[in-house]
Design a protein around this nucleic acid. Sequence first.
DNA 1: GCCAACGTTGGC
DNA 2: GCCAACGTTGGC
Length: 156
Amino acid sequence: MTARRRYWLMKSEPDTFSIDDLERVRTEPWNGVRNYQARNYMRDGMKVGDGVLFYHSNTAVPGIVGIATIAAEAYPDPTQFDPKSDYHDPKSTREDPRWLLVDVAFERKLSRTIALDEIKARADELGEDFALTRRGNRLSVLPVSAAQWKLLLAME
DNA sequence: GCCAACGTTGGC
DNA sequence: GCCAACGTTGGC
């Protein structure tokens, strides 16, 4: 009995960490997530081998730029314990860590950016449960259904 | 750089 | 437990 592969979309600001950075390092601990809903998706949903749409946010043309896979299931994000880190959380303890991360591995760059504009134009087909196009949603880690994954990648 | 949306914090 | 103040996200 094997669990079905799941799919996700993960946002990153390319100035901070881009798809090219991921291609260079191959595998990256996805540190710095400080939103409980996003954390819960990583902790409760993600399994090794799951597919990830790599999304560039806060840039001239926001959109999906690559594909990655989950390479390690959730474990404590070490940056929360580092007083020098931007992601330091003084309220978190090693005995009861508040924040987790997963490892994300490079798979491939898309041949072109699937821009947010184009994605919005297909919002009806993607459905109301697609968090990226839901109004006001700022989640940086969000689930993607198999149908949504297929539809989005068919736009490449 | 602006600002709408929305999550978090903390006083009460 | 309410909710105003504040901070952050992210499109534009």
